[in-house]
Design a protein around this nucleic acid. Structure first.
Lengths: 95, 95
DNA sequence: TCAATTAGTCAAAAATATCTGACTACCATT
DNA sequence: AATGGTAGTCAGATATTTTTGACTAATTGA
């Protein structure tokens, strides 16, 4: 079922979910967190956010980090691969 | 239901369908046609191709042209907006 | 100790997207 | 007149995505 004819298709699919573009955008400015996203993204639900974060992490756009501080929590940081997408997204905005 | 927070989201959604990336890729090298796509894209069906072409046209990535030649037919050409996406797609390929 | 916050999982329902098969309509060839 | 190619449309079925609500489990603050 794999189709590698279109080289950009993988990236496109990866960012095509209902919430992923917004999560990615937020992750561009600062590390994102599960419950925080749930509050920020109006209309989103746990399941969808969990799935989006997992898939973004599996595809190395985000890096999951357990922060051992005050209120022990988990952060998702933009990876180097993720950062390399930023200028591409910016050029998309002006079309 | 509209969400304009993420400026690249529209483009992303527009190219997120099952067949659109492949159709767009083909349209980059030459004008595409309905029945021709139906033969080239293994597993695709009329309905999906018709929908993809319509949406790509509605969003000004493709331009529908009735060619009044030998076997009267319809061509979908890449628009200027569509052409401006090519370098962006190329940069996506190398990530 | 109780309540809230953290970050989830799970199964089932609802909403979307895609596919199938039948049908239309025009034109050209046999 | 029948066949095949052009480019679709339509309704209904199937498949995929997303949502809902209940639940878990560890940590924190009062």
């Amino acid at each position: 079922m794999e189709n590698n004819d279109c080289p950009a298709e993988g990236l496109l699919k990866l960012l095509s979910g209902k919430w992923k573009p917004q999560i990615f955008l937020l992750a561009c400015s600062e590390p994102v967190r599960f419950n925080s996203l749930l509050r920020q993204l109006k209309g989103a639900n746990k399941q969808s956010i969990a799935t989006a974060l997992r898939e973004l992490e599996e595809n190395d756009l985000l890096i999951k980090i357990v922060v051992k501080e005050k209120p022990l929590h988990i952060e998702y940081n933009l990876s180097e691969k993720g950062k390399s997408l930023i200028p591409i997204f910016q050029s998309l905005e002006n079309i």
